[in-house]
Amino acid sequence: MHPQRRRRLALVLFIVALSSLGVGLAVYALRQNLNLFYTPRQVVAGEASTLARIRVGGMVVRGSLEREPDSLAVRFRLTDGDRELWVRYEGILPDLFGEGEAAVAAGHLRPGPLLEADQVLAKHDENYTPPEVVEGMKAGHAARAAREAAGQEATSQPNAAEDSAP
């Protein structure tokens, strides 16, 4: 390669390496601030500010959703699998919001701790399935559960062996 071109190639590599290093260090320094939300565990541990508006993300605990009869106010618990946090919200929930689904709530922390949310967003996952497949899976699970229940009642050896076979 021509020495001048070699020098320019080195310059190009230097630009890319140096800017990557700079941005990499900046991103590393900001790593906590780049998270969109806190987990309930972080909030319970006191890592989130009690003054600023914060976001908390997690799974809506099944059976925790309570609606007030004459208003849009709702209460539910968010969990990260370890700790749980109560959230209070008054407003319209997104269509995809539901128990057992992920959600991100934004608002201010109150003693308790309880998050007084002014915004609730639903978070969906990267899986896409047609409804028939989901229905089929539900029916399959139900059939399997029924079969297992019947197998336990009968407690007969051949039936149990049939169930465990692949």
Binding site: N35, L36, F37, H124, E126, N127, Y128, T129
Partner: peptide, 21 residues
């Protein structure tokens, strides 16, 4: 993958089957 975000992770990946029907 690096941070908690509202956007879901990738459906199409080089190393695994797509999480899509």
């Amino acid at each position: 993958d690096w941070w908690y975000s509202l956007h879901q992770p990738a459906t199409i990946r080089l190393t695994a089957a797509p999480s899509m029907h």
